[in-house]
Design a protein around this nucleic acid. Sequence first.
DNA 1: AAACATATACGAACAATTTCGTAGATGCAA
DNA 2: TTGCATCTACGAAATTGTTCGTATATGTTT
Lengths: 126, 126
Amino acid sequence: MKPTDSELEILHVLWANGPSTVRQVHETLSQSRDIGYTTALKLMQIMYEKGLLTREEDARSHTYTAAVSEEDTQRNLVDRFVETAFRGSASKLVMQVLGQHKASREELDEIKKLLNNLNQDAGRRD
Amino acid sequence: MKPTDSELEILHVLWANGPSTVRQVHETLSQSRDIGYTTALKLMQIMYEKGLLTREEDARSHTYTAAVSEEDTQRNLVDRFVETAFRGSASKLVMQVLGQHKASREELDEIKKLLNNLNQDAGRRD
DNA sequence: AAACATATACGAACAATTTCGTAGATGCAA
DNA sequence: TTGCATCTACGAAATTGTTCGTATATGTTT
């Protein structure tokens, strides 16, 4: 259920480019790091067995599609990460990230807006 | 340099309780999961070799201390995590976390305050 | 001092992940 | 139709992380 780092790389390619053959995925992956064709193939076969990918057995090659959504996957990853790295304290994580990374004004505004809503909710609950 | 999940568990114990013997760490760890004494020992020995822990060779047992700070470690982990799970988009991560996790009003206020400062900075830079 | 409790060190098994070589199938081109 | 390019499948090695049993040393108690 939890994709490994390599599997995540492949998922990102499929999320960004849509259904692709092993060759296409390998081509993209090659641009950012050294990886053999059969390595990519094997990874995608394993992911298929795990249910992380579906595939269409076309004429000669197979076309693979991500079977899990980017959102769901990231939600799962975040859950685990908050737990292991921040012992469950999501707000600590948020503050760490905000203090550390740059974000555009638009992004900050969007976050602020979301935060205001949450703040109102929290107020009502008290 | 990057602690594994098990190593992180041990670091959390040491960060929370301060310098401790293997026995003390094992005692704490046992409360949350099944783990043998020698397993904890081995992990801490490896962490010592890696430089994640220092140790004081007392009379009979050793007293271990975290050699890396909680803040630095979390910063590193967040960096990697943003990269692998969110392809570098820190704000996506923040929004994912805020939308998903509950936080107390105090925490939200604190985040909001931090965010306002950042927002001003971003404004000035434009 | 002898027996016991408890510590470290070490080796090894096991599992998961990553990597790639090689074999065999299949379509296409000469 | 023969040979070349390219595909999948498979097996296996290398790496890393986790786990614990056993040996051995060292204090402590009687």
